[in-house]
Each structure stands twice: as C-alpha cells, then as structure tokens.
C-alpha cells in the first residue's frame, strides 16, 4: 500500500476560454494535512470540485488510493471514500438537522421490502455527534433555515467527521465559525489526520494554515506556486508565494516535493 492517498498529475481545467487550472500536480499522504492557499480566483475551489467528482478535468490524472480514478459524480467519489465540505454550504434548509446529517445515507428498516426511515435511531446518532463536537443546537428537529451560519457550518463539519472516509476536502470550513468553534474544528482536523485520513483544507487565514497543516501548497493563477513543508517555511514566505512577489525558484515540475 502506497503511503499516498491522493496524487494529482498535471490537472488542467478550462471553462470555455478561461484557464482556471493550468497543470496542477501535488500529492497528499495518508494522515497528512495539506493547507491549500491562494488568492481569490486562484482555482482552489475548482480543484476541490475536480477531486470530489463535481467537475471533470479538461485533462490530467487523479490517482486515489493507489489507482487512477475518474469520478463522474460526487456519489462515486463519496463511495470511494472522499468527503467534502464545500465553500457554499451543502445543506437543505427546508428540512431538519437530522435529515441533513443523513442526507442520502438514511438509516432504514425494510418492512415488506419497503424502506422506512428510522427517525429515532437517526436522531440519537446526530445528538451524540453534536454533543461530542460541543455544538449546541436547540432541537435536532428544527429546520436548518432557523439556524445561524455557524450552526449550519457545524452540521457540515460534524457530518463529515461522522462519516469518515479516506480523504477529506474542506473548502474554507471555518468562515462562519466563532473563535471557540474554530479551535475545536482545528483540533478535529488533527484528530482525523491522526486516524490516517488525508486532509486538504483551503483557508485564507495564514495562522490557521500554520496551526494545522503539515504541508502548504500555494496555487497562483491556476498553477502550483509553492509546495513546502510547514516546518521549512514562514508566513512571510507563503504570502510572497501567494502574491507572486520575489517568486524566485521555479516549482518542482511533478510537484512531488515532500513525498
């Protein structure tokens, strides 16, 4: 078993004439936390969507868990063990917390072959998960439209923690969280990585990246502008990579630095 969970090889993505990604290559090890940094519009969200099956690359290869994979849909990526928290949250505000937590993976009991939702069992699971994460939500039966932005984001985070998988992609997961919730979230990420799960986290906050990441990958205008172990760099250097100032050395071609 290779110690790499994810390898990207010259991923290119064009939206018509727009070249959103221009040959992205890097790798994520099992149990490693990679912080993906870059300015607005650099291509981070696009890359996450390609890994999670929501978009197809124009060209390039995605190696996941030792084999080349072409995920045609989020369902396939999820089935393979990739959990994603998207920048624009993926909740259905017209249904309650429990329904959102179990979206697409409901607990059912078959009676005469008809699957029946097991509401109590599901509620118990959600209550435990929320309590473990220290998230306070008045009732698991309130529709999500009544919840605050932070509570919504907490549902998404707890959801992926609960379902686990082999690789977790987080696109600005803490944007709506308070100080305490963010601290818990960062701890949660370390705990998950400790279980051997690979983590890719996108953030604009340098402090967060340095707190949680083992390695930092910088994307600039659709290309890898830096791929370096956290211990071997500094926030100032990373900022220079992001903005492109004093961008001296060329980036290693295959992007396998640190592997």
């Amino acid at each position: 078993m290779s110690d790499l969970i994810l390898q990207l090889d010259t991923i290119i993505k064009n939206f018509g004439a727009i070249e959103a990604l221009r040959g992205i290559s890097f790798a994520v090890k099992r149990g490693e936390v990679v912080a993906l940094l870059g300015d607005n519009g650099a291509g981070k969200s696009t890359l996450v969507k390609i890994i999670s099956g929501g978009l197809q690359p124009t060209s390039g290869r995605v190696m996941f868990d030792g084999a080349e994979r072409h995920f045609a849909s989020p369902a396939e990526a999820k089935a393979a063990g990739i959990e994603t928290v998207y920048q624009d949250l993926s909740l259905c505000t017209n249904v309650d917390v429990v329904a959102n937590f179990f979206m697409g993976r409901e607990i059912v009991k078959r009676i005469f072959g008809i699957p029946i939702l097991q509401e109590r069992a599901m509620q118990a699971v959600v209550e435990t998960a929320m309590a473990n994460a220290g998230t306070r939500i008045p009732s698991m039966r309130t529709n999500v439209e009544h919840l605050s932005g932070g509570q919504r984001q907490a549902i998404e985070l707890n959801r992926f923690v609960h379902w686990g998988g082999k690789l977790v992609l987080l696109d600005e997961p803490f944007a709506a969280l308070g100080v305490e919730q963010t601290r818990r979230g960062l701890e949660m990420i370390k705990r998950i990585a400790g279980q051997g799960i690979g983590v890719v986290i996108i953030t604009h906050i340098m402090a967060q990246a340095f707190q949680v990441a083992d390695r930092i990958v910088v994307i600039r205008q659709g290309q890898v502008a830096g791929n370096i172990e956290r211990a071997k760099t500094s926030p100032d250097e990373v900022v220079r990579m992001i903005t492109g100032e004093g961008f001296a050395q060329p980036v290693p071609a295959a992007g396998m630095a640190g592997t």
């Binding site: 999670s52 929501g54 849909s73 369902a75 999820k78 993926s90 017209n94 249904v95 697409g104 939702l117």
Partner: peptide
C-alpha cells in the same frame, strides 16, 4: 425525503450522492 430535499437544494443533494 430525497424528493423534498431536492426541492429545497438540488446542488446539495447532488453533492450528497443522491
């Protein structure tokens, strides 16, 4: 449940693998 959630947010349900 899924039909109701699709009516609420088709993108979220798609991402959830429905």
């Amino acid at each position: 449940r899924h039909v109701t959630m699709i009516g609420g947010n088709p993108v979220a349900t798609f991402r959830a693998g429905i």
